[in-house]
Computed example of a mutant assay.
Amino acid sequence: MAHAHSVLDFHSFSAQALAADEVQLIESSVAQFGAPLLLLDCDVIRQQYRALNNALPNVTLHFALKPLPHPAVVRTLLEEGASFDLATSGEVDLVAQEGVPAERTIHTHPIKRDADIRDALAYGCNVFVVDNLNELAKFKAYHNEVELLVRLSFRNAEAFADLSKKFGCSPEQALTIIETAQAWNIRIKGLSFHVGSQTMHPQKYVDAIRTCKEVMEQVVARGLPALSTLDIGGGFPVSYSQQVMPIDQFCVPINEALNELPETVQVLAEPGRFIVAQSVTSVASVMGQAERDGQMWYYLDDGIYGSFSGLMFDDAQYPLVTLKQEGEYAPSVLAGPTCDSIDVIAENIMLPKLDNGDLIIGRMMGAYTSATATDFNFFKRAQTVLLNEHDQSCERMIG
């Protein structure tokens, strides 16, 4: 991605003035813990989970840990009755430590080492995903213990991340895998797919569901055991710089397509970003400034190698606002703290004149931010402050 990876119209966001109680919370948090900070509001996690659960009433939601693998998120969702989608042994360890029952988990990484399979089975997770015969063969030794989902590929050039570019197989290949599994005495439980992260159009899901329905029918026509499960993945969109369709409206055609499946088919989903993106607010402070080529450069104590890593890895555009609103606005640059010139958060943005120590607030910072942050240049990652962890107004620091 080029240096001008995210050009934000900062002035448009600055109109979204923070509420007085939010300003007070931010300032008191910085006074107590310093900056940079990530404020993680567990109430937002609850609200987002409930909204998607209501929008997909007949779907079991398995939260995908990847975008925000935080223990408090796991605890909050566990209390909500959520299930979990795992992809690595580290994620297995996290849910195990937080007391998640293994029967409420699935392991969906299509490519696994033998150790990954053994770690999941030792925990008690026995539902896995495959998308090729090489992967299927890894389960010969565990055929009495596992149930598999075959992942189909549905390309989506419009998505933030076209996950079907890297994983998934064609319907014809899926049928070959299912037939081979029958010969190897490995149980195929169903099918899965992922139409891509931040998918803007529900029709992508509808098309994939109907294709999977056809594959299920062909399985029966070939005399193979009927499939009982369909995992429709994640990718449900959230609003960054542009508004997206409300989730209840977005899911209407998805539910209509799901209603065409046999009543015996259990449906799962793997939401990640939708659950957590809105739950985190970032707080960074100006640690220095300089005038370069007629623009003010403000150097923050958080950047591309930290909480704004999503600007590189996720292509998200985070709404930003300053606590300081008054003064004449001028074209400016926000840069991160490291010595790397690529560490620039936004260019050509309209800002009032800022002082050292002034705060920059980032919205929608829950997904693929802290999860992909680094300690590059030995700048420590932003600390996380938990809000409303116990479904009430409370705040504490975590290590």
Rank of each mutant, 00 (worst) to 15 (best):
H3F: 15
L18D: 07
E27P: 03
S28L: 09
A35F: 04
R46Y: 05
L56W: 02
A64M: 03
L65W: 01
P67S: 04
P67R: 02
L68W: 00
P71A: 13
V73H: 01
L77T: 06
L78Y: 11
L78W: 06
S83M: 08
D85T: 12
S89P: 10
Q97G: 12
G99F: 09
R104G: 01
H107G: 00
R113E: 10
I117V: 13
D119P: 08
D119Q: 13
L121F: 07
Y123H: 12
G124W: 10
N132F: 10
L136P: 10
A137I: 09
F139A: 08
F139N: 00
Y142K: 05
N144W: 10
L148Y: 07
R151L: 10
A161D: 10
S164F: 12
K165V: 13
T176D: 12
I177V: 04
A181P: 07
A183E: 13
A183D: 08
M216F: 11
E217R: 11
Q218S: 12
P225K: 03
S228G: 07
S228Q: 14
D231V: 03
G235H: 02
Y240C: 00
I254F: 03
E260D: 11
P262T: 03
P262L: 03
P262Y: 09
A269S: 15
F274G: 00
V276Y: 01
V286G: 06
V286H: 12
M287R: 14
D301F: 02
D302G: 09
Y305P: 01
G306T: 04
G310H: 08
G310K: 08
L311F: 15
A316Y: 11
P319A: 08
T322W: 07
T322H: 10
K324P: 00
P331S: 09
P331H: 05
P331G: 07
I342K: 12
I349V: 14
P352C: 03
D355S: 15
L359D: 02
I360Q: 11
I360G: 04
N377V: 03
Q383L: 10
G399Y: 13
